[in-house]
Computed example of a mutant assay.
Amino acid sequence: MDDDLRQIAARIRSWRDEAGLTLQQLGDRACVSASTIHKIENLQTVPTIAVLLKVTHGLNRRPSELLSEVDASRQVAVMRRDDLQTLSVDQRGAIQHLIGTIPGNKLDVCRVRIEPGVGAGMDGHEPWQFRGEMVLLIEEGRVRTDISGEIFELGPGDSIHFDPSIPHRWIATGERAAQAVTIAIAPEHMQGDLMNRITNPMGMGKRAIGDPCVDMPAGNALALRRPSGSRGGALGG
């Protein structure tokens, strides 16, 4: 059996034991059958990416933790280039976790690729909110960000740093896919919620995302940086 599958199975069982969850309890939280989780833990099936996303979300873990190289005694996590995993569903978008995680840490760095019209808090749906800190670094394409009604059009080389407890959206615009690096200090399940929003926007409804937000004024909660010599700025919301 492949070593990666053995590691995935061992970590899922270990995390479930740490959380004190039965197979059925985890299944209910992850919307996956208890028998499927049993088969994963006992190397009796090869789980799909969609199932692994659900299970890690049910355990309040990031998918990247399944294969990251962790030394708990030193609080160090090493992510090798060859171990980078890309999660992609329905050709709407993909997320690649760029760093490993250490116990208790809330930092995550990802590369996100989204098709035009796709993103977090898409038009017609509730904006995104979570307690933490967020940076978007645009690598390719165009991204429109809406921070509590203030609109910023971003292109390659632009970045935006903001307080994500403020209602916000960011969506790929233009005629081709956009690619961005996201740097976030956030609840552990935030990236799972992001993947759900990218791949299943119609199912998000009005569900609150992340920890309860702390009421904070929008002033001084956002910083925008553009490459030297670039034009453009905030547009009226």
Score class of each variant (00 low, 15 high):
A77C: 01
D215V: 15
F152N: 09
V51C: 11
H189I: 06
R197N: 13
H125M: 14
Q179D: 01
S35C: 13
A234Q: 03
F152M: 07
P167A: 07
A94M: 05
A208T: 12
A19M: 12
V181S: 02
G157Q: 12
K39V: 07
R61M: 12
G141A: 04
D82Q: 08
M122C: 10
P103S: 04
W128I: 15
P116I: 10
G233R: 01
A184S: 10
D90G: 06
E139Q: 14
I166A: 15
G121E: 09
H97Y: 06
I95V: 10
Q24N: 14
G157R: 13
I102E: 00
L224H: 09
C110S: 09
H57L: 12
E115A: 15
T86F: 00
R226G: 00
A221Y: 00
H161S: 13
F152P: 00
G104M: 02
A208V: 15
I185W: 05
L224E: 00
R62C: 10
D71E: 11
L136A: 14
G58S: 07
R81M: 02
D108N: 10
V70M: 09
L84A: 04
Q75D: 03
I166Y: 05
I114F: 05
L224N: 02
G210Y: 11
G205V: 07
T145D: 01
I40N: 12
D17P: 03
V135N: 11
A184E: 04
P156K: 12
A177S: 15
G229I: 02
L107A: 06
G20H: 11
S148R: 08
A234P: 02
I147R: 08
I185T: 04
L224C: 03
P164F: 07
H161D: 09
A10W: 00
S165Y: 07
N220R: 12
V112F: 01
D146E: 03
E133P: 01
H161Q: 12
T199H: 11
T48Q: 10
L136K: 10
L235A: 05
K206F: 04
D146I: 00
R61W: 04
P167F: 06
V89N: 06
Q24V: 15
L224Q: 02
L21E: 10
A50D: 15
V32N: 13
L67H: 08
S228W: 01
T173V: 14
D83E: 05
T56N: 09
A94R: 08
E140N: 11
R207S: 11
S64C: 13
P63A: 09
D163I: 13
M204Y: 06
A77F: 00
I99S: 06
G121F: 08
H161I: 03
L84P: 02
G155D: 04
I183Q: 02
P217Q: 05
A50Y: 07
I37Q: 13
A50Q: 15
D71T: 08
E115C: 14
L52T: 08
T36S: 15
V112T: 11
P127Y: 06
N42I: 06
G27I: 13
G219S: 14
A178I: 05
K39P: 12
A19Q: 14
L136T: 09
C110N: 08
G233N: 00
T86Y: 00
A19W: 08
A180C: 04
T173C: 11
V109F: 01
I171W: 06
L21I: 09
I99P: 01
V89T: 05
L107P: 01
I138P: 08
H97F: 05
